[in-house]
Design a protein around this nucleic acid. Structure first.
Length: 806
DNA sequence: AGCACGCCGACT
DNA sequence: GTCGGCGTGCTC
């Protein structure tokens, strides 16, 4: 009986979101395994696409002519049973296509690039041959980058069957090889060869001794050249004389990290740490129990050491460990600390890796060479087997939720994997998300506390400055007298300060003083942001860019002025207020280039500047012993946002920056400037009072029927015409009202706060629900319906547990 | 997605 | 009359 394969094709649409059946040709019989990639014909014509084999059978229900698999792309499955099962779960829970989920779980290089070629199959006219084919019998077919007239002429020839389209799928997943050398003789034979040399042949002599020293080994040519200092030609001579063999050696593009041995010092545990480590280790040692711990520890309480001990225990049980950290915390120091403890067993996955490097790290994990994986969000899909421990540091971070499809939350994926393997989860944070803290309260998670800092240092005193008062005292400025004095004081003492600007909703724009005209993006409904470094106006949403006008485009007036506060403007103001201060600015503009981020932080660490001024990105995980002052320039810009999590965000951010001050032997101080000094999030952050904040916020969430009491789900639609988008979301709302449980609540529909983006209008609604068995099927049904309208330009997206409501 | 089929306006 | 516009349906 011939083999039959079930294949998920690489065509991300609703209609193709299911397995297709293919014949396994005789030459591939018993060579194909579930989880491998294959190339298959799909659709009319001879179109070829990539696919993933998800099942193998002897027979099929499908009663039509089966097409055959064209080729196999892998020697081994790239998705194992676990990941395959997970892709299905992920697709269901995120309302995403299965193929999109599969690609999300794999390195980018697993995606094939499709190229189309046109081949002449019949005699062409002289003109066509030369004008279209340049005298060749095959050309690349790339309609996007060809003149429309050329394309139509080519298509016409195709219709007349004079030429045909061929497909070439290129697999980018290629291992990297270098030339290597291998000794071919025995020690004695080399001695013999040496005796035959003339005395002047010094280089050859050297090569012979070198080959003797690496008997039985294989080494890359470049490394051999480096060690011996011999030229390429000597090795070529050696090859000719058959002293050595050249070969292709596979190398892993593992990024180099320097390991300094002083990281090997393993600190003593405090009593609290010991309690935590013991509890976690006990769970790790229990087979097949998926338990979750919430490790709540103030900044500097030594959470990382607890993680490292837990990983150690996991490895000793012959299991693997996964440690997630937010992208911005994935600093070289952090990586060095883990590598210092577990060395070569560690694989690191972060956004700075090239596709090739990422692929190589992925394979180290997949082959079992790496047993500890450290990485940002997508590292949750690392192909580790027999996972014993999953750690999520800073578990409250919103970056754990992917904001494009599939919109998964790494925490949920962690939970799934932990149940699959019976692994232990450790969620760590100084300010846990309300969801997690509430689960700990209910006993769903084990709650572990690290209430004290390692060095017994008190948390820094936080001073809140009422900016409304400040404004009354003196002219408009971003700096209160208190903050300015404090900064000057640090400079005079040779200490450093960190100043944070809450960037959100706080960018610079230009406005005409005469008519009030504000420059807007022609594609999106938002103001353009001023960028002084490039002297342009940019749209932060679609990337649109144009010059700065000198006269008002609306009233032709000359009174165009800058408004708003960007880091750059604040830097200028600060510089004029404290002329001799050395200020380092860190924001998206100064860190765009690769490595710029690190460079800036190193410069600051080496005390090349007095002040580090930046956006949220400076709040996380940085540890500078000489920093004794942290200032928050505008604490409350997030508070004004129409998002039920804005208080939580503000509290978390303030608590986090506070932790940056005075971590070493010097006492630290924090100054927070705000227009809402009485807001509970700010007051409770001032007193480092997480528990009170938790209680207060829970009450508010309870009253408002928000998470963690209710689940949320956002549906948004977009269309080029506003009426169409509005009509569509109204229909959806109607449909949902008729089909959802009575306890479910629909908010909206409303236009999105940025109602137009990239020439499209956006409308949304939010469903709040406690338990709704009909929800999933209703939404699936709805997606099906809407998909039929997709030809008319309606686009829909479902976001379970959205992190941003604006 | 991307390809073919099929039905309408405006050109040699 | 035919060419080519794009709306519609389908892909094992």
């Amino acid at each position: 009986m011939a083999e039959i394969a079930q294949v998920i094709v690489d065509v991300p649409t609703m209609q193709t979101n299911r397995p297709y059946t293919y014949q396994v040709p005789a030459q591939f019989d018993r060579q194909i395994q579930v989880g491998m990639r294959v190339i298959i014909p799909f659709g009319n014509g001879s179109r070829q696409v990539q696919g993933f084999v998800v099942g193998l059978d002897e027979q099929t229900e499908f009663d039509g002519e089966l097409k055959s698999i064209i080729s196999i792309m892998d020697l081994n499955p790239v998705l194992n049973q676990e990941l395959l099962a997970m892709s299905q779960w992920l697709a269901d829970s995120c309302y995403a296509f299965r193929i999109s989920c599969m690609h999300t779980m794999l390195p980018n290089v697993m995606k094939t690039k499709t190229q189309r070629y046109l081949q002449i199959i019949d005699e062409l006219s002289e003109t066509d041959l030369f004008e279209l084919f340049h005298g060749q019998d095959e050309i690349l077919f790339d309609p996007e980058n060809m003149p429309a007239e050329t394309v139509s002429r080519l298509l016409k020839l195709k219709r007349q069957h004079q030429i045909e389209v061929t497909y070439a799928l290129t697999d980018q997943a290629k291992a990297k090889f270098v030339t290597s050398i291998k000794p071919t003789m025995s020690f004695e034979r080399y001695e013999e060869e040496r005796s035959l040399l003339r005395a002047s042949a010094k280089a050859q002599n050297k090569l012979l001794s070198f080959l003797q020293s690496i008997l039985g080994k294989e080494m890359s040519l470049s490394e051999a050249k480096e060690i011996t200092g011999l030229a390429n030609s000597i090795f070529t001579t050696g090859e000719k004389k058959q002293w050595l063999e050249k070969d292709q050696l596979e190398v892993l593009r593992t990024p180099q990290t320097t390991l300094n041995s002083d990281n090997k010092v393993i600190p003593e545990l405090t009593a609290d740490q010991k309690v935590a480590v013991d509890a976690i280790c006990e769970s790790i040692n229990q087979e097949k129990t998926a338990e979750t711990f919430l490790l709540q520890g103030v900044t500097g309480s030594g959470k990382t050491e607890v993680y490292l001990r837990a990983i150690e225990e996991t490895l000793s049980e012959d299991k693997t460990a996964l440690m997630l950290v937010p992208e911005i915390s994935l600093t070289p120091q952090m990586v060095t600390r883990v590598k210092g403890r577990f060395g070569e067993l560690v694989a690191v996955l972060h956004s700075g890796l090239s596709n090739g490097e990422r692929y190589d790290e992925w394979r180290r994990i997949e082959r079992g060479e790496a047993k500890v994986v450290v990485g940002a969000r997508s590292a949750i899909f690392a192909p580790l087997q027999s996972i014993g421990l999953i750690i999520m540091d800073e578990e409250h971070e919103t970056s754990y939720k992917q904001d494009e499809t599939p919109r998964y939350h790494a925490r949920n994926v962690a939970k799934w994997r932990s149940e699959y393997y019976g692994a232990t989860i450790v969620l760590g944070s100084a300010t846990p998300s309300l969801e997690s803290r509430a689960r700990a309260q209910k006993g769903v998670y084990h709650h572990l506390l690290l209430p004290e800092r390692i060095n017994q240092q008190p948390l820094p005193a936080v001073q809140v400055i009422d900016m409304r008062q400040e404004l009354r005292k003196h002219a408009e400025s971003n700096f209160s007298t208190a903050l300015l004095d404090a900064v000057k004081d640090r400079i005079s003492r040779g200490e450093q300060s960190i100043l944070m600007l809450n960037r959100r909703g706080y960018s610079s724009f230009i406005m005409c003083r005469d008519c009030g005209f504000v420059m807007q993006c022609p594609n999106c409904d938002i103001s353009l942001t001023l960028h002084m470094d490039t002297h342009t106006m940019k749209c932060h949403y679609c990337g649109h860019e144009e010059g700065i006008p000198k006269i008002c485009p609306n009233c032709q007036g000359h009174k165009i002025r800058y408004y708003g506060t960007g880091t750059q403007k604040v830097q200028e103001e600060l510089q004029s207020l404290i002329p001799d201060a050395k200020i380092l600015r860190m924001d998206v503009d100064t860190t765009r280039r690769k490595g710029a981020h690190e460079k800036l932080l190193n410069a600051f660490g080496n005390q090349e500047a007095d002040i580090l001024l930046g956006t949220q990105m400076i709040a996380k995980g940085l540890d500078f012993p000489n920093v004794t002052l942290v200032g928050v320039i505008n604490a409350d810009t997030a508070l004004g946002l129409p998002d039920f999590r804005s208080s939580e965000r503000t509290f978390q951010l303030l608590t986090q920056v506070s932790g940056r001050a005075g971590r070493a032997d010097k006492a630290g101080a924090v100054i927070v400037q705000t227009f809402n000094p009485d807001h509970y999030a700010i007051k409770l952050a001032q007193h480092h009072d997480y528990e009170r904040f938790f209680q207060t916020e829970m009450n508010i969430r309870h009253r408002g029927k928000y998470p963690p009491y209710f689940y949320t789900l956002q549906i948004s639609v977009s269309h080029e015409e506003e009426v169409q988008a509005a009509k569509s979301i109204m229909e959806i709302a109607q449909f949902l009202k008729a089909n959802l449980a009575a306890t479910s609540i629909i908010l909206g529909p409303t236009p999105k706060s940025i109602a137009r983006m990239n020439r499209k209008y956006y409308y949304q609604l939010v469903i709040k629900y406690k338990q709704d068995n009909q929800l999933h099927s209703t939404l699936t049904q709805m997606m099906d319906q809407i998909q039929k309208q997709s030809r008319q330009g309606i686009q829909i997206s479902i976001d379970p547990e959205p992190q941003h409501f604006i």
